[in-house]
Amino acid sequence: MAALLGPSGSGKSTLLTILGTLMKPTSGRYTMLGQDLVAADDCALTEFRNRHIGFVFQFHNLLPDFTALENVVFPTAVREGRETAQARARGRDLLVRMGLEARVDFPSANLSGGQKQRVAVARALMNRPELVLADEPTGNLDRDSAMQVMDLIAEINCEEGTTFLISTHDEKIAGLCRRQIVVGDGVVTG
């Protein structure tokens, strides 16, 4: 569990999108799990993202016309071509873990901000990725909701060993992480 710390505009999001294979760096190399992700084509990157990387964004996180469960199941369903009972069961478990038992079949547009971010965390975990990239996941939340989300992330990190890279400009949030990486002006400074 690592924090990416730095002021606004310092390049945190940029780094995360590159690490998430959504953007290619103008120079340099990026390999993960032995795969060269700079040379890979769109198809291979899509597949790689689906299996190995989970995302939690700051805004526009969920598909508003789908329920909480349907959102969580998406990464598996899009790969398998349908929503299997197995996938639904796992999605439900994840939502229960996020304390959203009562919101499983809720339209995601009707959830509160904190609930949405917890659904997003559940979805990021759906395909058991090695790495979850969270770009200011608590940026839009009040203190209580933010802490609740961070506690859940810490718990998953502890129990399942999933790596979380969380960008934030909040020292307190960063303090919850084992490692802090500081960026400034597009350069890792510490």
Partner: peptide, 16 residues
């Protein structure tokens, strides 16, 4: 557009 972006990030291919 935002939803399409999310789907793509979650591993939905262009074909999908």
């Amino acid at each position: 557009r935002p939803e399409i972006g999310i789907m793509r990030a979650m591993g939905a291919g262009r074909g999908f």
